[in-house]
Structure formats: structure tokens, C-alpha cells
């Protein structure tokens, strides 16, 4: 009994504390998320397995139609590639920026941010204009005499890659840069003082310390590219559709159940890849730091 009443008492104190403290400030935000994030996610999960009773037909349709599996595979493979390419291209840029004076850093980061602020729709439109038959790239190549007929660049997989990299590269640079600003700059210098060549100082000191940031940068770009919708539809060909495009198509056709099943697969695949990357990273980085210990 004493334990029971003690619990009741502490619950009462808890409620009074909640009302008197600033904890209740969280309630409106939680309500918005409950209605417009949690409830919709639950709706998707339910729609994918219920249709007048429990059903596996949506997942079965996915698994038995080669075209859907192909779109799934393409979305996954493309997102991994975009993630890798953005980190490979973005890492040296971040490295360059972080080694400038503070004023220059702020200015250069602004140059990276400005393109990011323009909406994806507008940036994709800009690529349509640039890569079109009469676009600047074709006109310039003809003017230079390199080609005599316009190249077909629009509606190709290459165009999707170029546009997606331009759209996501700033994010990779920002993620790498913010990780690099955390690195103690005296460490690579100490390595050089102790006789390491610049390359060795980078390879054995700076690179391992920035690897975590590079991986975070990969994860963010990968995640964003898994949900890409506008760019593959506008600059890609018929064979460039990604999962989000197929989901949208099924929403138009009022196949909510199937769209939900695809959405769930997209979510689960994204989470699995992120978890796997994290696990590999822990192991990889862990082994490395053990190797570095004296």
C-alpha cells in the first residue's frame, strides 16, 4: 500500500510540476505532429495491408511484377551512387573552404548556400533549359564546331545524374564542412612538425577525423535522393522513373493501397541502408582508431 500511494503521490506531483514548469509548451507541437505526421504514417501502414480484411496482395503485386522491382532497384542504386558522387565531389570543396580565413569561409559557404535556396522545381527547369535541343550547351558545342547536330541530352539518365548532383551537392559540402570545422587544426600541423609529408598528415590525421562527417554527408544525400520526384520526371526518360514517381502515379490512379505498400518499402529500404552504413562505419572507424593507438 505505501508503495502504491507513493506512486500516486509522485504522479500528482508530476502533473503539478508539468503545469507549473514550461514542459507544457511542447504540447501544441506534439499535437501537430500527431495529426499530420504520426497519424498519416499509421494510415499508410494500415492501407498497405488492409483492404476489407488483412491482405498481402499489394506486396504480392510488387514482388511479382518485374517492372516495380526494377524501379525499386533503380531508386536504391541511383541514390547510393548520387550519395557517393556528391561526397567525392563535395569533400575536396569543403576541405578547401575550411582551410581559408574565417571571412573567406563565410563568403564561400554563402556561395554554396545560394544555389541550394532556389527551389528544386526551378533548378530542374533550369536544367531543362540548359540541356534542351536549343539549349546553351548544344548551341555552344555547335558554335565551337565540335558537333554539327544537337545532342540529345534531355530525357536521359545522364541528365538526371547531372541535375540531381547539382541539386544535392551543396548539402554534401555543408555536412562535410561542418564536420571539418570540429577538427582540431593543430593535429595535422603537429604531424607535419613531426616530419610527416602533407599527404601523410592528411591521410593519417585529417582524413580519419573527417570520415564520420563524410559518412553523415553520404547518409543525408542518399536519404534525400531516395525520395526524389521532380527531377527524374522532368529531365529523365521513361526508364528513369523512381519510386516516388510510381507512388504519385498510383495516387492518381486511386490505388492508395498499392501506393502505401510502395511508400512503406521506400521507408524501410531507406532505414535499412542507413543502419547498415552506420554499422559498417562503426566497425570501420573503430578498427582504424585501434590501429592508430600507440
Amino acid at each position: 500500500m505505501p508503495a502504491h500511494s507513493f506512486r500516486l503521490l509522485s504522479l500528482g506531483i508530476g502533473i503539478v510540476k508539468l503545469l507549473r514548469s514550461s514542459d507544457w509548451l511542447i504540447v501544441p507541437g506534439v499535437l501537430l505532429l500527431a495529426f499530420f505526421f504520426v497519424a498519416p504514417t499509421v494510415e499508410i501502414a494500415l492501407s498497405s495491408i488492409f483492404d476489407e480484411g488483412l491482405t498481402g496482395k499489394h506486396f504480392e503485386r510488387f514482388a511479382t511484377k518485374g517492372a516495380y522491382v526494377e524501379v525499386f532497384r533503380r531508386t536504391l542504386v541511383r541514390s547510393v551512387w548520387i550519395g557517393i558522387l556528391c561526397v567525392l565531389i563535395g569533400y575536396p570543396i569543403a576541405y578547401f573552404i575550411v582551410h581559408r580565413s574565417l571571412r573567406t569561409q563565410v563568403f564561400l559557404m554563402l556561395l554554396i548556400l545560394v544555389p541550394l535556396w532556389t527551389s528544386i522545381l526551378i533548378r530542374t527547369y533550369a536544367w531543362m533549359v540548359v540541356l534542351g535541343r536549343e539549349g546553351i550547351v548544344n548551341n555552344a558545342l555547335i558554335w565551337l564546331g565540335l558537333i554539327d547536330k544537337p545532342l540529345r541530352m534531355m530525357f536521359t539518365t545522364g541528365a538526371v545524374y547531372v541535375a540531381m548532383i547539382q541539386i544535392l551537392l551543396p548539402i554534401a559540402v555543408i555536412a562535410c564542412y561542418s564536420a571539418m570545422t570540429e577538427i582540431d587544426r593543430t593535429l595535422p600541423r603537429a604531424a607535419k612538425v613531426l616530419g610527416a609529408s602533407p599527404w601523410k598528415a592528411f591521410r593519417h590525421v585529417f582524413l580519419p577525423l573527417s570520415l564520420e562527417g563524410a559518412l553523415t554527408s553520404f547518409v543525408i544525400v542518399f536519404m534525400l535522393s531516395m525520395g526524389f520526384f521532380i527531377t527524374p520526371a522532368l529531365v529523365g526518360g521513361r526508364k528513369d522513373a523512381m519510386l516516388a514517381n510510381v507512388i504519385a502515379h498510383n495516387v492518381e490512379q486511386l490505388n492508395w493501397g498499392f501506393a502505401s505498400a510502395l511508400a512503406l518499402l521506400l521507408l524501410v529500404a531507406t532505414i535499412i541502408v542507413i543502419v547498415v552504413v552506420r554499422l559498417l562505419a562503426n566497425r570501420f572507424v573503430g578498427v582504424r582508431s585501434v590501429g592508430m593507438a600507440p
Binding site: F36, F37, P40, T41, E43, I44, A248, V251, S260, A263
Partner: peptide, 10 residues
């Protein structure tokens, strides 16, 4: 796209 689908059904 997932949030969009969920909000739409909801």
C-alpha cells in the same frame, strides 16, 4: 512523398 501520401489518405 511518404508524408504527402499519408496526409492525403488521412
Amino acid at each position: 512523398v511518404i508524408i504527402a501520401l499519408g496526409v492525403f489518405i488521412f
